[in-house]
Design a protein around this nucleic acid. Sequence first.
DNA 1: GGACGCATGTAATAGGTTACATGATTAC
DNA 2: GTAATCATGTAACCTATTACATGCGTCC
Lengths: 190, 190
Amino acid sequence: MAIIPLGYALLGLLARAPQSGYELILRMEEPIAFFWHARRSQIYPELERLETEGLVSHTVVERHNRPSKKIYSITQAGLAELRAWAGKPMDVPPDRDEFMLKVYSLWTVEPSEATAVIRAYEQAHANRLDRYEHIKAEMLHNGDPIALGLHSPRFAAYATLQRGIEYESGYVAWCRWLLEALEADGGIQT
Amino acid sequence: MAIIPLGYALLGLLARAPQSGYELILRMEEPIAFFWHARRSQIYPELERLETEGLVSHTVVERHNRPSKKIYSITQAGLAELRAWAGKPMDVPPDRDEFMLKVYSLWTVEPSEATAVIRAYEQAHANRLDRYEHIKAEMLHNGDPIALGLHSPRFAAYATLQRGIEYESGYVAWCRWLLEALEADGGIQT
DNA sequence: GGACGCATGTAATAGGTTACATGATTAC
DNA sequence: GTAATCATGTAACCTATTACATGCGTCC
């Protein structure tokens, strides 16, 4: 059966370093590549499935005074599968943004409430932007990732972070544009 | 039970004008508010559900030499529900973008293939941007929507379109940035 | 005669979330 | 003693997609 995006997310992580399911879960709490995430209830079964397909394998590591863990690694077949998928162009999927749905019906709401809704969302995106900027600063602190080039996993991570930053700052800018347009309208009651 | 985003999408459309399930389906093929869509297999049952909750109602319109249709309207209760939801701030949901997942693993792929993948995606977003710009031009042709202000459904639609435009042009810009970074790296084989 | 548009649905499946469930060690 | 971290999973449910299913009228 076809591998789902989550499967490729896991393969993408394991291609960088072998690690346990638990470590993968921690990495995916904060979205991997800044645009994907999953819960453990999805990750453990998916790892099993990848294993039955021969794309990953695991060894059990026993430790004294610690729960034992399964360290997963990507196999040759897994790497080939990942490479084939990554190299294949894809269609733009339909975008879903519940907030846009809200804005679409915001005309039914009192202006003061409406602006509060927008301001709160702007703030949430500004917070994310902040987090991403910090991560970027850390990354740059360890040397210029751009210099590493296309064949470097670190550059790939940097590229997705950069998209995250532009996405969040674009969202913030749009929220501000909207608030200004409403202000000019005189519809704002502070 | 709680109403799902699709339900609010339908209420948001019906708040503008009563219409049939079929018309709603046509509207949602091209994403409503530029960031939501659904298939008919989801829309018909959801309309039924909204009706059992008393949020919409329908009348059957028989026409000679044509299939009859059910015209749905939003009820007072439906409008109240929509307003309550629209006026309530929401958390930023986890974003999902499969392309970012691909980029995250693009270092495993041959440079020439990788750049082809990025170029194709850039083109797809550029096409969308183009479509959105045309819609915007049309909208502006019918008078400045900003002047209509917050209480106007037309302004609300314009605002979401504006976000769509900024989203797509941001994506295109990022693709170009990435391609340039790779070019500077010398990794490109045209 | 065949394709397309209008108009409405159902069934099967896949993907993802929430809640449930367990058990050991370490830090306060 | 109690909360947090490590570590692994299962079950129930909801959402959305794909494929299946029907029938009339109009245009070419």
